[in-house]
Design a protein around this nucleic acid. Structure first.
Length: 432
RNA sequence: GUGGCUGUAGCUCAGGAGGUUAGAGCGUCGGGUUGUGGUCCCGAAGGCCGGGGGUUCGAGUCCCCUCAGUCACCCCA
């Protein structure tokens, strides 16, 4: 029954990422990390599992908590759960350590949700994200959105749409929930069994894609009309700020997001080149109440999560962020079969030059073939005739042009001809 | 979780209305060229046709179950 074929493979909804695909991951994370650094965010690393209650604060009526959580009891009878999203654990870390505010952090972490997988939706997926705690300044909202919008631009994504809305403060939401609930009750026949769901969380119905509900949802009251003066003013400042920094957006009155902790500004980026219904490539919003809910001092906050797999799918759809053609600068071809190739490789790599070789004493033809496939720009051959006079043969693999270079200056010769790499300041020190 | 579609070499796919030893291209490995890659030529390895059960003289092909992928919904990144 349980054939090995079924067991020795990645579990349902999970996948392996190998090169060259993983090269794109490295590049994507590097660009995000650089942008986060420029915006003043530091990396935070939190556990991959937490006490169940930490994630339960996301909201008991949310699908993420009520039916998608990977929870379990460990050998010490602790009720734990694999992280389903990035915010709760980050907020827990803030409450535990009380770092000075504003606390601005970014993360890269896998999330786990037990749901039916399809393309762009996995049981384990990775999110890049940020949280900024300690200020309710609308300009912080703008900064967070700007960071993510800039990241997409860094990747070369163009077909991206930004939707924004405001959930308002507690008073705004209380007023809105009442009228919204009344609206749902007026359509009880259409909602059927889902009326109970609507009563548990009236907002949840708003982002439904069911065609037969479209009309009912279209005519539902909109939260913008029930915002308090303060909430409306803050939302206005966010919109003004977005315009000031040149970010296009659309107001989406029915954008409510699936997690209960959102307050005030909420936003979502959609990849318009993505075909299916999994087109949300990043989203987030204000969570001014979550820190207090986890036992911390009342602390306003805002953040977002951005799905790595989906962003990469969006890149595929737009032809952005292509996989690199080669990951080394030079490929050493060894016709000597002494120990000299090993030493040359050592020198090149310590000089900051990415270099590779073939193994097992293969024929020169095979070695040159491997050099070609490596994508290296240069082949460096250790050959008897030239080596006798203290030289090696360097070949430009694109043009086929060959030159002799003195053995002791190969590293320097290559260093001046390979991009973004330099000789180390100190001999023997690794580059960067 | 609900419903639909799909499942043949590492990858992309062919296999007429069941019928002998299941094919191609690409990739991999080896050779033509033991001092030279990307072109060309030759050759080889690689499949319990996702898994299990059933119908049949006979199943890659038909039926059921199951696993996985995929699409829509629920929801989300």
């Amino acid at each position: 029954m349980s054939a090995d074929r079924d067991v020795f493979r990645a579990p349902k909804g999970t996948r392996d990422v190998l090169a060259p695909e993983s090269d794109r991951w490295v590049e994507l994370v590097a660009r995000f990390a650089d942008r986060a650094r420029r915006f003043g965010y530091g990396l935070v690393v939190t556990p991959i599992f937490e006490h169940y209650e930490v994630f339960a604060r996301i909201g008991e009526t949310t699908d993420v908590v009520s039916k998608e959580m990977y929870d379990f009891f460990d050998k010490g009878e602790r009720h734990l759960a694999l992280r389903p999203e990035g915010t709760a654990g980050t907020v827990r870390a803030f409450v535990e350590h009380r770092p000075p505010t504003p606390w601005k952090v970014w993360y890269l972490a896998p999330n786990f949700r037990y749901e039916r997988p399809q393309e762009g939706r996995y049981r384990q997926h990775f999110q890049l994200g940020v949280e900024a705690l300690g200020s309710d300044d609308p300009q912080l909202d703008v900064e967070v959105i700007e960071l993510l919008a800039g990241f997409y631009r860094d990747l070369g994504l163009r077909q991206v749409r930004l939707l924004v809305n405001s959930m308002g403060d507690a008073e705004s939401r209380a007023r809105y929930r009442a009228v919204l609930l009344a609206h749902w009750h007026a359509h009880a026949d259409l909602l059927g069994d889902d009326l109970a769901r609507a009563e548990a969380n009236p907002l949840r119905i708003l982002d439904s894609k069911r065609p037969d509900w479209l009309d009912m949802i279209e005519r539902a009251p909109q939260i913008v009309e029930y915002l308090t003066d303060a909430s409306a003013a803050a939302f206005g400042q966010v919109q003004a700020g977005l315009r000031d920094v040149g970010i296009d957006f659309e107001i989406a009155p029915r954008l409510v997001r699936g997690l209960d902790y959102y307050t005030g500004t909420v936003f979502e980026f959609q990849g318009l080149a993505l075909a299916g219904s999994q087109n949300a490539i990043g989203g987030g919003g204000r969570l001014d109440g979550l820190v207090a809910e986890m036992g911390g001092p009342p602390t306003p906050a805002i953040g977002f999560g951005c799905g790595v797999e989906r962003v990469l799918l969006a890149c595929d759809a737009e032809g952005a962020l292509p996989a690199p053609t080669g990951r080394v600068d030079a490929f050493v071809v060894d016709a000597l079969a002494t120990g000299d190739a090993l030493v040359l490789l050592h020198e090149l790599r310590e000089a900051g030059i990415a270099a590779d070789r073939a193994y097992g004493g293969r024929s020169l033809k095979k070695q040159w073939g491997a050099a070609d496939k490596s994508g290296a720009r240069f082949g460096v051959m250790l050959a008897p005739r030239e080596f006798e006079t203290g030289h090696v043969v360097v070949k430009d693999l694109a043009t086929g042009e060959q030159t002799e270079v003195r053995r002791e200056s190969v590293a320097a010769w290559l260093a001046t001809r390979t991009p973004e790499r330099t000789l180390p300041d100190q001999p023997g020190a690794p580059s960067r």
